[in-house]
């Protein structure tokens, strides 16, 4: 034990760790939002609700089918991603030609429906979800105690973020995607099925949110409002980072998580508001966002 700026190292690094965890979720969620926005020109307000659905799906699979965390980590994104594809076919494909805000309003409506539905069946108190056996316990690093599960979340979400970045920026499929973002009509003329690509992109974005939900389940309580709590912060993250860049979304997510964690140590009263304050400052100094092109 030692002290930094009069703060015990345990507290400082502990909050830093929580910040990194939150940052992992901000990064995963804002990454999903950026991917969806790039392709569909829709801000997916239901993203938080889909993250919550991911957590609930993991909880229900364990509770009723006895399927553990690791199975959930694979099945849940596929399942919830599939519901995303249904949503895209049923609703979103019809609003893409309208003003962008209609997509926002529509997905806001979806988020309300999903949250209301889960509140109705599960109340608003929340359910606990056990950390998987393999990841129980932790390491004492001397200056702090590091629970294994939390280390896993940080490492795994960093891997997922990197893989997504790689798939979009460095593969052939990703190049189609980026081309279709720039000019869908032309890409279609080359014989690529753009509507299907749009549908799958939305499904993928939703799957990312669900994956984040599964990872969040053992850390936060699984509760119907967990999605709306986080999505507004993620919006602020997206405004700060700008949605033009995948890497920008990831970096901004992690960085803001850490800043939020540090604020908890040095100025706890402001920990809920610090990200919004940073958003306001960024708007004053760099209105387009840190990595953004002007929208």
């Amino acid at each position: 034990m030692f002290e930094i700026f009069g703060i015990p190292s345990q507290a400082l690094f502990g909050q830093l760790l929580i910040g990194l965890i939150n940052g992992s979720f901000y990064a995963l969620l804002s990454l999903g939002l950026a991917v969806i926005f790039g392709m569909l020109n829709i801000i997916n307000f239901a993203h938080g609700a889909q993250y919550m659905m991911g957590a609930f799906a993991a909880y229900l699979l364990l509770q009723y089918l006895g399927l553990n965390y690791w199975v959930a980590l694979i099945i849940v994104p596929v399942l919830i991603g599939a519901t995303g594809i249904v949503v895209e076919r049923l609703f979103l494909q019809y609003v893409r030609k309208l003003d962008h805000v209609y997509g926002l309003i529509l997905t806001f409506g979806l988020a309300l429906m999903i949250e209301g539905f889960f509140r109705n069946y599960f109340g608003s108190s929340g359910e606990p979800y056990q950390v998987p056996n393999l990841l129980l316990g932790g390491q004492n690093l001397g200056f702090m105690y590091l629970p294994t599960y939390r280390a896993w979340v940080i490492v795994f979400s960093a891997i997922v973020c990197f893989a997504t970045w790689f798939a979009i920026e460095r593969t052939r499929l990703g190049s189609y995607l980026r081309a279709a973002t720039e000019n869908p009509a032309l890409v279609r003329a080359f014989g690529i099925n753009v509507p299907r690509m749009v549908m799958l992109t939305y499904g993928f974005g939703v799957a990312l949110a669900a994956l984040a939900g599964v990872m969040a389940a053992p850390i936060y309580n699984v509760s119907p409002q967990m999605g709306s709590d986080i999505i507004i912060v993620v919006f602020a993250v997206v405004v700060i980072g700008g949605m033009g860049s995948i890497l920008g979304a990831i970096l901004t997510g992690f960085a803001l998580g850490i800043i939020e964690g540090l604020t908890k140590v040095f100025f706890p009263e402001a920990s809920n508001t610090v990200i919004f304050v940073i958003m306001a400052i960024v708007l004053l100094v760099r209105p387009a966002g840190l990595f953004g092109r002007t929208a």
């Binding site: 609703f91 019809y94 609003v95 309208l98 209609y102 309003i105 529509l106 806001f108 409506g109 979806l110 988020a111 309300l112 429906m113 999903i114 949250e115 209301g116 539905f117 509140r119 109705n120």
Partner: peptide
């Protein structure tokens, strides 16, 4: 009520 509100949103937009 939340579900109904959400459904009205979706219906109005579509």
């Amino acid at each position: 009520v939340l579900v109904i509100q959400g459904a009205i949103f979706v219906f109005c937009v579509l």
